[in-house]
Design a protein around this nucleic acid. Structure first.
Length: 487
RNA sequence: GGCCCCGUCGUCCAACGGUCAGGACAUUGGCUCUUCAAGCCAGUAAUAGGGGUUCGACUCCCCUCGGGGCUACCA
Protein backbone atom coordinates (compact mmCIF):
# COMPACT_ATOMS: atom_id res chain seq x y z
CA UNK A 1 0.00 0.00 0.00
CA UNK A 2 2.68 2.44 0.92
CA UNK A 3 5.44 2.61 -1.57
CA UNK A 4 8.86 3.99 -0.96
CA UNK A 5 8.30 7.39 -2.48
CA UNK A 6 5.38 7.91 -0.18
CA UNK A 7 7.50 7.05 2.77
CA UNK A 8 10.13 9.50 1.66
CA UNK A 9 7.57 12.19 1.19
CA UNK A 10 6.17 11.47 4.60
CA UNK A 11 9.59 11.74 6.13
CA UNK A 12 10.31 15.04 4.45
CA UNK A 13 6.88 16.37 5.35
CA UNK A 14 7.57 15.49 8.89
CA UNK A 15 10.80 17.35 8.78
CA UNK A 16 9.10 20.43 7.41
CA UNK A 17 6.33 20.10 9.93
CA UNK A 18 8.74 19.66 12.82
CA UNK A 19 8.16 22.16 15.55
CA UNK A 20 9.57 25.59 14.99
CA UNK A 21 11.97 26.60 17.70
CA UNK A 22 13.53 30.04 17.96
CA UNK A 23 15.51 31.71 20.67
CA UNK A 24 16.82 34.98 21.97
CA UNK A 25 20.29 34.76 23.41
CA UNK A 26 21.35 37.94 25.18
CA UNK A 27 24.59 38.32 27.10
CA UNK A 28 24.34 39.62 30.63
CA UNK A 29 26.97 42.27 30.11
CA UNK A 30 24.87 45.36 30.66
CA UNK A 31 21.40 46.81 30.58
CA UNK A 32 19.31 45.06 27.93
CA UNK A 33 19.37 46.99 24.67
CA UNK A 34 16.47 47.78 22.30
CA UNK A 35 18.36 45.80 19.70
CA UNK A 36 17.66 42.77 21.87
CA UNK A 37 13.97 43.67 22.00
CA UNK A 38 13.99 44.06 18.23
CA UNK A 39 15.46 40.62 17.56
CA UNK A 40 13.43 39.05 20.36
CA UNK A 41 10.21 40.39 18.85
CA UNK A 42 10.79 38.69 15.53
CA UNK A 43 11.91 35.43 17.12
CA UNK A 44 8.95 35.45 19.44
CA UNK A 45 6.46 36.27 16.69
CA UNK A 46 7.89 33.66 14.36
CA UNK A 47 7.62 30.95 16.99
CA UNK A 48 4.10 32.03 17.91
CA UNK A 49 3.00 32.12 14.29
CA UNK A 50 4.20 28.56 13.77
CA UNK A 51 2.89 27.29 17.08
CA UNK A 52 6.45 26.63 18.06
CA UNK A 53 8.64 27.45 20.99
CA UNK A 54 10.65 30.49 21.93
CA UNK A 55 13.66 29.89 24.14
CA UNK A 56 15.48 32.37 26.36
CA UNK A 57 19.15 31.56 26.70
CA UNK A 58 21.60 33.59 28.71
CA UNK A 59 24.97 33.65 26.98
CA UNK A 60 27.16 34.28 29.98
CA UNK A 61 30.42 32.81 28.76
CA UNK A 62 32.46 35.96 29.12
CA UNK A 63 33.19 36.18 32.80
CA UNK A 64 35.20 39.40 32.43
CA UNK A 65 32.22 41.34 31.16
CA UNK A 66 29.63 39.49 33.23
CA UNK A 67 27.28 41.66 35.26
CA UNK A 68 25.29 39.80 37.93
CA UNK A 69 22.33 42.18 37.82
CA UNK A 70 21.99 42.01 34.05
CA UNK A 71 20.06 38.76 33.88
CA UNK A 72 17.31 40.08 36.11
CA UNK A 73 17.05 43.15 33.93
CA UNK A 74 16.80 41.03 30.82
CA UNK A 75 13.92 39.08 32.32
CA UNK A 76 12.23 42.24 33.51
CA UNK A 77 12.58 43.84 30.10
CA UNK A 78 11.20 40.87 28.21
CA UNK A 79 8.38 40.49 30.69
CA UNK A 80 7.49 44.13 30.40
CA UNK A 81 7.31 43.78 26.64
CA UNK A 82 5.18 40.68 26.99
CA UNK A 83 7.61 38.59 24.97
CA UNK A 84 7.20 35.49 27.05
CA UNK A 85 9.47 32.54 26.56
CA UNK A 86 8.53 28.87 26.65
CA UNK A 87 11.80 27.59 27.96
CA UNK A 88 14.53 29.13 30.04
CA UNK A 89 16.28 31.09 31.12
CA UNK A 90 19.02 28.60 30.29
CA UNK A 91 22.49 29.65 31.31
CA UNK A 92 25.54 28.60 29.35
CA UNK A 93 27.75 28.92 32.39
CA UNK A 94 25.85 25.98 33.84
CA UNK A 95 26.58 23.81 30.84
CA UNK A 96 30.36 23.96 30.73
CA UNK A 97 31.02 20.19 30.65
CA UNK A 98 28.79 19.87 27.59
CA UNK A 99 30.88 22.31 25.58
CA UNK A 100 34.17 20.81 26.65
CA UNK A 101 32.96 17.37 25.77
CA UNK A 102 31.90 18.54 22.33
CA UNK A 103 35.20 20.31 21.76
CA UNK A 104 37.02 17.11 22.65
CA UNK A 105 34.86 15.24 20.23
CA UNK A 106 36.00 17.63 17.55
CA UNK A 107 39.62 16.96 18.45
CA UNK A 108 38.96 13.24 18.11
CA UNK A 109 37.51 13.84 14.69
CA UNK A 110 40.51 15.98 13.75
CA UNK A 111 38.37 19.10 13.34
CA UNK A 112 39.96 20.90 16.25
CA UNK A 113 43.25 21.06 18.10
CA UNK A 114 44.88 22.22 21.32
CA UNK A 115 46.72 25.50 21.13
CA UNK A 116 49.28 26.62 23.71
CA UNK A 117 50.27 29.94 22.22
CA UNK A 118 50.58 32.75 24.73
CA UNK A 119 48.60 35.94 24.51
CA UNK A 120 51.79 37.84 23.90
CA UNK A 121 52.73 35.67 20.97
CA UNK A 122 49.29 36.08 19.48
CA UNK A 123 49.59 39.81 19.93
CA UNK A 124 52.91 39.80 18.09
CA UNK A 125 51.45 37.88 15.20
CA UNK A 126 48.59 40.32 15.00
CA UNK A 127 50.85 43.36 15.01
CA UNK A 128 53.18 41.94 12.44
CA UNK A 129 50.27 41.11 10.16
CA UNK A 130 48.94 44.62 10.58
CA UNK A 131 52.31 46.14 9.66
CA UNK A 132 52.51 43.99 6.58
CA UNK A 133 48.95 44.78 5.61
CA UNK A 134 47.70 41.24 5.99
CA UNK A 135 44.67 39.92 7.82
CA UNK A 136 45.53 39.48 11.50
CA UNK A 137 44.93 35.77 11.67
CA UNK A 138 46.40 33.07 13.86
CA UNK A 139 49.39 31.47 12.14
CA UNK A 140 48.21 27.96 13.00
CA UNK A 141 51.44 27.13 14.77
CA UNK A 142 49.88 24.59 17.14
CA UNK A 143 47.90 22.98 14.37
CA UNK A 144 51.09 21.17 13.39
CA UNK A 145 51.60 19.71 16.86
CA UNK A 146 51.34 15.97 17.33
CA UNK A 147 47.83 15.35 18.69
CA UNK A 148 48.93 12.81 21.30
CA UNK A 149 51.70 15.01 22.61
CA UNK A 150 49.36 17.98 22.64
CA UNK A 151 46.79 16.03 24.63
CA UNK A 152 49.49 15.22 27.18
CA UNK A 153 50.57 18.85 27.41
CA UNK A 154 46.99 19.89 27.90
CA UNK A 155 46.92 17.96 31.16
CA UNK A 156 49.40 20.33 32.78
CA UNK A 157 49.53 23.42 30.61
CA UNK A 158 47.04 26.15 29.90
CA UNK A 159 45.44 25.68 26.54
CA UNK A 160 42.67 26.74 24.24
CA UNK A 161 40.94 24.57 21.67
CA UNK A 162 40.80 25.85 18.13
CA UNK A 163 38.72 24.93 15.13
CA UNK A 164 40.59 23.49 12.15
CA UNK A 165 39.35 25.59 9.28
CA UNK A 166 39.93 24.00 5.86
CA UNK A 167 42.73 25.67 3.88
CA UNK A 168 40.81 25.71 0.66
CA UNK A 169 37.34 25.85 -0.72
CA UNK A 170 34.50 28.02 0.43
CA UNK A 171 31.72 27.90 2.94
CA UNK A 172 28.30 29.22 2.14
CA UNK A 173 24.87 29.31 3.66
CA UNK A 174 21.45 30.49 2.69
CA UNK A 175 20.16 33.45 4.58
CA UNK A 176 16.38 33.54 4.60
CA UNK A 177 16.32 37.28 4.07
CA UNK A 178 19.45 37.82 2.00
CA UNK A 179 19.86 34.72 -0.09
CA UNK A 180 23.11 32.84 -0.48
CA UNK A 181 26.21 34.21 1.21
CA UNK A 182 29.65 32.75 0.45
CA UNK A 183 33.02 33.03 2.13
CA UNK A 184 36.42 31.82 1.05
CA UNK A 185 37.73 29.47 3.73
CA UNK A 186 41.09 31.15 3.36
CA UNK A 187 39.79 34.29 5.07
CA UNK A 188 38.49 32.37 8.07
CA UNK A 189 40.50 32.20 11.27
CA UNK A 190 41.08 29.07 13.33
CA UNK A 191 38.49 30.21 15.79
CA UNK A 192 39.01 29.55 19.49
CA UNK A 193 36.31 27.18 20.71
CA UNK A 194 37.28 26.70 24.34
CA UNK A 195 39.02 29.53 26.14
CA UNK A 196 41.87 29.00 28.58
CA UNK A 197 39.48 29.51 31.49
CA UNK A 198 37.51 26.50 30.33
CA UNK A 199 34.56 28.51 29.09
CA UNK A 200 33.41 28.09 25.52
CA UNK A 201 33.43 31.00 23.11
CA UNK A 202 30.20 32.22 21.63
CA UNK A 203 30.83 30.28 18.45
CA UNK A 204 31.03 26.86 20.03
CA UNK A 205 28.33 27.53 22.58
CA UNK A 206 25.70 28.76 20.09
CA UNK A 207 26.22 25.88 17.74
CA UNK A 208 26.13 23.24 20.45
CA UNK A 209 23.16 24.79 22.21
CA UNK A 210 21.15 25.53 19.10
CA UNK A 211 21.60 21.94 18.06
CA UNK A 212 20.90 20.39 21.43
CA UNK A 213 17.89 22.66 21.96
CA UNK A 214 16.64 21.78 18.46
CA UNK A 215 16.51 25.37 17.33
CA UNK A 216 15.15 25.38 13.80
CA UNK A 217 15.54 29.06 12.99
CA UNK A 218 18.46 31.18 14.00
CA UNK A 219 17.15 34.72 13.66
CA UNK A 220 19.72 37.21 14.85
CA UNK A 221 21.42 40.51 14.07
CA UNK A 222 23.45 41.30 11.02
CA UNK A 223 26.64 41.53 13.05
CA UNK A 224 26.72 37.73 13.03
CA UNK A 225 26.89 37.26 9.29
CA UNK A 226 30.65 37.06 9.17
CA UNK A 227 30.73 34.49 11.99
CA UNK A 228 28.18 32.27 10.35
CA UNK A 229 30.61 30.37 8.10
CA UNK A 230 32.50 29.31 11.23
CA UNK A 231 29.24 28.06 12.66
CA UNK A 232 28.44 26.22 9.44
CA UNK A 233 31.85 24.58 9.60
CA UNK A 234 31.11 23.50 13.15
CA UNK A 235 27.75 21.99 12.25
CA UNK A 236 29.47 20.07 9.50
CA UNK A 237 32.30 18.94 11.75
CA UNK A 238 29.76 17.54 14.19
CA UNK A 239 27.78 16.01 11.37
CA UNK A 240 24.66 17.97 12.28
CA UNK A 241 21.94 19.46 10.10
CA UNK A 242 22.04 23.20 9.64
CA UNK A 243 19.27 25.31 11.09
CA UNK A 244 17.76 28.08 8.96
CA UNK A 245 19.57 31.36 9.27
CA UNK A 246 18.18 34.86 8.91
CA UNK A 247 20.03 38.03 9.78
CA UNK A 248 18.17 41.18 10.64
CA UNK A 249 19.61 44.60 9.93
CA UNK A 250 21.21 46.48 12.81
CA UNK A 251 19.49 49.53 14.23
CA UNK A 252 21.20 52.84 13.69
CA UNK A 253 21.21 56.45 14.81
CA UNK A 254 20.23 59.30 12.50
CA UNK A 255 23.98 59.84 12.14
CA UNK A 256 24.01 56.31 10.72
CA UNK A 257 26.25 55.13 13.51
CA UNK A 258 25.31 52.24 15.72
CA UNK A 259 22.56 53.00 18.23
CA UNK A 260 24.17 54.67 21.22
CA UNK A 261 23.41 56.35 24.48
CA UNK A 262 24.77 59.68 23.30
CA UNK A 263 21.68 60.22 21.16
CA UNK A 264 19.05 59.02 23.61
CA UNK A 265 17.79 55.94 25.30
CA UNK A 266 18.95 52.54 24.12
CA UNK A 267 18.05 50.46 27.16
CA UNK A 268 14.68 48.73 27.09
CA UNK A 269 14.07 49.61 30.70
CA UNK A 270 14.89 53.24 30.00
CA UNK A 271 11.97 53.34 27.59
CA UNK A 272 9.80 51.93 30.31
CA UNK A 273 11.00 54.57 32.71
CA UNK A 274 10.29 57.38 30.26
CA UNK A 275 6.73 56.17 29.95
CA UNK A 276 6.60 54.38 26.66
CA UNK A 277 3.94 51.71 26.36
CA UNK A 278 5.37 48.27 25.59
CA UNK A 279 2.85 47.67 22.81
CA UNK A 280 3.84 50.97 21.18
CA UNK A 281 7.54 50.17 21.35
CA UNK A 282 6.90 46.78 19.83
CA UNK A 283 4.72 48.20 17.07
CA UNK A 284 7.42 50.74 16.27
CA UNK A 285 10.11 48.08 16.25
CA UNK A 286 8.03 45.86 14.00
CA UNK A 287 8.03 48.64 11.42
CA UNK A 288 11.80 48.74 11.29
CA UNK A 289 12.77 46.56 8.39
CA UNK A 290 9.31 45.09 8.06
CA UNK A 291 6.07 46.41 6.66
CA UNK A 292 2.51 45.31 7.10
CA UNK A 293 1.18 43.73 3.87
CA UNK A 294 -1.85 46.02 4.00
CA UNK A 295 0.29 49.05 4.58
CA UNK A 296 -0.94 49.54 8.13
CA UNK A 297 1.27 51.46 10.52
CA UNK A 298 -0.59 50.85 13.73
CA UNK A 299 -1.62 47.29 14.36
CA UNK A 300 -2.05 44.86 17.20
CA UNK A 301 0.61 42.40 18.22
CA UNK A 302 -1.67 39.50 17.35
CA UNK A 303 -2.07 40.91 13.87
CA UNK A 304 1.69 41.17 13.57
CA UNK A 305 2.07 37.55 14.60
CA UNK A 306 -0.37 36.54 11.89
CA UNK A 307 1.08 38.67 9.13
CA UNK A 308 4.78 38.48 9.90
CA UNK A 309 6.80 37.08 7.04
CA UNK A 310 10.56 36.80 6.76
CA UNK A 311 10.24 37.60 3.08
CA UNK A 312 9.02 41.07 3.91
CA UNK A 313 12.11 41.89 5.93
CA UNK A 314 14.21 44.51 4.23
CA UNK A 315 17.95 44.30 4.33
CA UNK A 316 19.14 47.85 4.86
CA UNK A 317 19.90 49.03 8.36
CA UNK A 318 17.10 51.29 9.59
CA UNK A 319 17.48 54.46 11.62
CA UNK A 320 15.82 54.28 15.00
CA UNK A 321 13.69 57.40 14.65
CA UNK A 322 12.77 58.51 18.15
CA UNK A 323 10.31 61.08 16.82
CA UNK A 324 8.27 58.42 15.12
CA UNK A 325 8.42 56.31 18.26
CA UNK A 326 6.97 59.25 20.20
CA UNK A 327 4.18 59.62 17.68
CA UNK A 328 3.47 55.90 17.88
CA UNK A 329 3.35 56.02 21.66
CA UNK A 330 0.95 58.96 21.48
CA UNK A 331 -1.26 56.91 19.19
CA UNK A 332 -1.37 54.11 21.71
CA UNK A 333 -2.04 56.43 24.61
CA UNK A 334 -4.96 57.96 22.72
CA UNK A 335 -6.39 54.50 22.08
CA UNK A 336 -6.64 53.74 25.78
CA UNK A 337 -9.88 54.43 27.60
CA UNK A 338 -9.88 56.41 30.81
CA UNK A 339 -9.83 53.42 33.08
CA UNK A 340 -6.92 51.80 31.26
CA UNK A 341 -4.83 54.94 30.95
CA UNK A 342 -5.65 55.85 34.55
CA UNK A 343 -4.38 52.56 35.80
CA UNK A 344 -1.21 52.72 33.70
CA UNK A 345 -0.57 56.19 35.03
CA UNK A 346 -1.20 55.09 38.56
CA UNK A 347 1.37 52.31 38.34
CA UNK A 348 3.83 54.50 36.51
CA UNK A 349 3.62 57.40 38.95
CA UNK A 350 4.01 55.05 41.85
CA UNK A 351 7.01 53.23 40.45
CA UNK A 352 8.95 56.12 39.02
CA UNK A 353 7.76 59.20 40.90
CA UNK A 354 6.87 57.68 44.23
CA UNK A 355 3.43 59.23 43.94
CA UNK A 356 0.25 57.65 45.20
CA UNK A 357 -2.51 59.27 43.21
CA UNK A 358 -6.15 58.53 43.85
CA UNK A 359 -7.39 56.38 40.94
CA UNK A 360 -10.74 58.15 40.94
CA UNK A 361 -9.05 61.52 40.54
CA UNK A 362 -6.75 60.08 37.90
CA UNK A 363 -9.65 58.84 35.87
CA UNK A 364 -11.14 62.32 35.89
CA UNK A 365 -7.87 63.90 34.80
CA UNK A 366 -7.11 61.41 32.06
CA UNK A 367 -9.60 62.70 29.46
CA UNK A 368 -8.00 66.12 29.80
CA UNK A 369 -4.46 64.91 29.14
CA UNK A 370 -4.90 61.94 26.83
CA UNK A 371 -4.37 63.95 23.66
CA UNK A 372 -1.64 66.03 25.18
CA UNK A 373 0.98 63.54 26.28
CA UNK A 374 3.11 61.28 24.17
CA UNK A 375 4.71 59.46 27.06
CA UNK A 376 3.48 58.69 30.56
CA UNK A 377 6.51 60.60 31.85
CA UNK A 378 5.04 63.84 30.53
CA UNK A 379 1.96 63.53 32.68
CA UNK A 380 3.29 65.11 35.80
CA UNK A 381 4.61 68.23 34.09
CA UNK A 382 1.23 68.80 32.46
CA UNK A 383 -1.16 67.70 35.18
CA UNK A 384 0.87 67.65 38.38
CA UNK A 385 -0.98 70.75 39.58
CA UNK A 386 -4.02 68.60 40.25
CA UNK A 387 -2.30 66.98 43.19
CA UNK A 388 0.94 68.89 43.75
CA UNK A 389 1.35 72.40 45.18
CA UNK A 390 1.95 75.09 42.61
CA UNK A 391 4.33 78.02 42.54
CA UNK A 392 3.90 81.19 40.52
CA UNK A 393 6.12 84.00 39.45
CA UNK A 394 4.78 87.51 39.00
CA UNK A 395 6.07 87.53 35.45
CA UNK A 396 4.03 84.49 34.53
CA UNK A 397 0.91 85.89 36.06
CA UNK A 398 0.98 89.31 34.51
CA UNK A 399 1.06 89.39 30.76
CA UNK A 400 3.09 91.98 28.88
CA UNK A 401 0.30 94.42 28.22
CA UNK A 402 -1.30 94.37 31.60
CA UNK A 403 -0.74 96.11 34.90
CA UNK A 404 -0.59 94.37 38.24
CA UNK A 405 -3.65 96.32 39.30
CA UNK A 406 -5.83 95.12 36.48
CA UNK A 407 -4.64 91.55 36.90
CA UNK A 408 -5.56 91.65 40.56
CA UNK A 409 -8.91 93.21 39.76
CA UNK A 410 -9.69 90.45 37.27
CA UNK A 411 -8.69 87.64 39.56
CA UNK A 412 -10.68 89.09 42.42
CA UNK A 413 -13.75 89.34 40.24
CA UNK A 414 -13.38 85.74 39.09
CA UNK A 415 -12.80 84.62 42.66
CA UNK A 416 -16.07 86.22 43.78
CA UNK A 417 -17.84 84.75 40.80
CA UNK A 418 -16.57 81.28 41.62
CA UNK A 419 -17.35 81.57 45.29
CA UNK A 420 -20.98 82.22 44.52
CA UNK A 421 -21.04 79.33 42.09
CA UNK A 422 -23.08 76.40 43.29
CA UNK A 423 -22.87 74.21 40.24
CA UNK A 424 -19.21 73.34 39.65
CA UNK A 425 -19.56 72.13 36.12
CA UNK A 426 -17.05 73.17 33.46
CA UNK A 427 -19.70 74.33 31.09
CA UNK A 428 -21.43 76.77 33.42
CA UNK A 429 -18.12 77.91 34.87
CA UNK A 430 -17.03 78.91 31.40
CA UNK A 431 -20.34 80.52 30.54
CA UNK A 432 -20.29 82.73 33.61
CA UNK A 433 -16.69 83.67 33.20
CA UNK A 434 -17.27 84.67 29.61
CA UNK A 435 -20.28 86.71 30.69
CA UNK A 436 -18.17 88.42 33.29
CA UNK A 437 -15.54 89.28 30.70
CA UNK A 438 -18.21 90.66 28.38
CA UNK A 439 -19.71 92.85 31.08
CA UNK A 440 -16.35 94.23 32.15
CA UNK A 441 -15.10 94.59 28.62
CA UNK A 442 -12.15 92.25 29.18
CA UNK A 443 -10.70 90.11 26.48
CA UNK A 444 -11.65 86.53 27.17
CA UNK A 445 -8.42 84.85 25.92
CA UNK A 446 -6.26 87.12 28.10
CA UNK A 447 -8.48 86.57 31.10
CA UNK A 448 -8.35 82.84 30.57
CA UNK A 449 -4.58 82.85 30.46
CA UNK A 450 -4.37 84.85 33.66
CA UNK A 451 -6.76 82.46 35.33
CA UNK A 452 -4.87 79.48 33.90
CA UNK A 453 -1.61 80.58 35.44
CA UNK A 454 -3.28 81.40 38.73
CA UNK A 455 -4.98 78.03 39.02
CA UNK A 456 -2.44 75.69 37.43
CA UNK A 457 0.80 77.59 37.83
CA UNK A 458 1.46 76.89 34.18
CA UNK A 459 1.08 78.70 30.89
CA UNK A 460 0.37 75.40 29.19
CA UNK A 461 -2.32 73.25 30.70
CA UNK A 462 -5.26 71.04 29.91
CA UNK A 463 -8.51 72.88 29.05
CA UNK A 464 -9.08 75.52 31.70
CA UNK A 465 -12.63 75.04 32.89
CA UNK A 466 -12.52 71.27 32.75
CA UNK A 467 -9.41 71.48 34.88
CA UNK A 468 -11.04 73.82 37.34
CA UNK A 469 -14.04 71.58 37.49
CA UNK A 470 -11.88 68.58 38.36
CA UNK A 471 -9.76 70.59 40.79
CA UNK A 472 -12.82 71.55 42.82
CA UNK A 473 -13.94 74.80 44.45
CA UNK A 474 -11.68 74.73 47.52
CA UNK A 475 -8.41 74.25 45.72
CA UNK A 476 -9.38 76.64 42.98
CA UNK A 477 -10.14 79.42 45.44
CA UNK A 478 -6.97 78.74 47.37
CA UNK A 479 -4.90 78.96 44.22
CA UNK A 480 -6.46 82.21 43.09
CA UNK A 481 -5.92 83.69 46.53
CA UNK A 482 -2.35 82.53 46.51
CA UNK A 483 -1.76 84.13 43.14
CA UNK A 484 -3.35 87.35 44.35
CA UNK A 485 -0.82 87.56 47.16
CA UNK A 486 2.08 87.45 44.73
CA UNK A 487 0.71 90.21 42.57
C1' G B 1 43.68 47.31 4.66
C1' G B 2 40.88 42.43 3.92
C1' C B 3 36.13 39.88 3.91
C1' C B 4 30.84 40.37 4.11
C1' C B 5 26.14 43.10 3.99
C1' C B 6 23.51 47.29 2.24
C1' G B 7 22.05 51.91 -1.03
C1' U B 8 13.86 54.82 -3.08
C1' C B 9 11.67 61.65 -0.05
C1' G B 10 15.38 64.32 6.07
C1' U B 11 13.55 59.36 8.48
C1' C B 12 10.71 54.38 8.34
C1' C B 13 8.55 51.58 4.59
C1' A B 14 5.44 50.45 -0.57
C1' A B 15 6.06 49.69 -5.70
C1' C B 16 9.21 42.64 -6.48
C1' G B 17 10.08 44.76 -15.74
C1' G B 18 4.96 48.80 -17.51
C1' U B 19 1.99 53.64 -11.35
C1' C B 20 1.70 61.02 -12.70
C1' A B 21 7.21 56.43 -7.95
C1' G B 22 2.56 55.50 -3.01
C1' G B 23 1.86 55.74 2.52
C1' A B 24 3.62 57.07 7.50
C1' C B 25 6.86 60.25 10.85
C1' A B 26 9.00 64.94 10.61
C1' U B 27 8.43 69.67 8.20
C1' U B 28 5.60 74.00 5.79
C1' G B 29 0.80 76.55 5.02
C1' G B 30 -4.36 76.66 6.29
C1' C B 31 -8.92 75.36 9.13
C1' U B 32 -10.53 74.69 14.33
C1' C B 33 -9.38 77.31 18.87
C1' U B 34 -9.12 79.93 26.06
C1' U B 35 -3.05 77.85 26.22
C1' C B 36 -0.95 73.38 24.54
C1' A B 37 -2.31 69.32 22.07
C1' A B 38 -5.41 66.26 19.15
C1' G B 39 -8.17 66.42 14.58
C1' C B 40 -9.09 67.89 9.37
C1' C B 41 -7.31 69.91 4.48
C1' A B 42 -3.26 71.17 1.37
C1' G B 43 2.03 71.47 0.12
C1' U B 44 7.59 70.62 -0.25
C1' A B 45 10.55 66.36 -0.70
C1' A B 46 13.51 60.40 -3.35
C1' U B 47 15.05 55.90 -7.07
C1' A B 48 23.68 57.67 -5.27
C1' G B 49 26.54 58.02 -10.18
C1' G B 50 27.95 55.59 -14.74
C1' G B 51 27.56 51.68 -18.08
C1' G B 52 24.86 47.58 -19.98
C1' U B 53 20.26 43.83 -20.77
C1' U B 54 15.21 45.04 -22.56
C1' C B 55 10.10 47.64 -26.64
C1' G B 56 10.34 49.33 -21.48
C1' A B 57 14.03 49.65 -15.71
C1' C B 58 13.53 51.67 -8.66
C1' U B 59 13.20 46.59 -10.02
C1' C B 60 18.09 42.26 -13.63
C1' C B 61 23.89 42.42 -14.55
C1' C B 62 28.75 45.11 -14.11
C1' C B 63 31.80 49.16 -12.35
C1' U B 64 32.40 53.47 -9.29
C1' C B 65 31.06 56.04 -5.06
C1' G B 66 28.85 56.03 -0.29
C1' G B 67 27.24 53.75 4.40
C1' G B 68 27.43 49.72 7.86
C1' G B 69 29.23 45.08 10.07
C1' C B 70 33.19 41.72 11.12
C1' U B 71 38.37 41.26 11.38
C1' A B 72 39.51 38.97 20.15
C1' C B 73 40.85 33.43 24.63
C1' C B 74 33.64 39.91 23.52
C1' A B 75 29.12 38.61 22.43
Amino acid sequence: MKDKSNAVRFASDRKIASKTITRIAPSPTGAPHVGTAYVALFNWAFARQNKGQFILRIEDTDRSRFLPEAEGQILEALNWLGLSWDEGPLRQSERLPIYLQHAEELIQKDHAYYCFCSETRLEEIRQKAQREGRSPRYDRFCRKLDPKAAAERAKKEKFVIRLKVPDEGETSFTDLVRGEIRFENSVLDDQVLIKSDGYPTYHLAVVVDDHLMKVTHVLRGEEWISSTPKHVLLYRAFGWDLPHFAHFPVLRESSHAKLSKRHGSVGILEFKEEGYLPEALLNFLALLGWSHPEGKEVFELEDFVRKFDLRRISTSAPVFDREKLDWMNGEYIRQLDSRQLGSRLKDYLKQYRGLEVDPVLLEKIVPLVRERIKKLGEFEALAGFFFNDVAWTKEELISRNESAGSAAEKLTAVLHLFESQSDWKAESLEKKTRALAAVKGWEAPALFMLLRVAVTGQTVSPPLFESISVLGPEKTSARIKGALKII
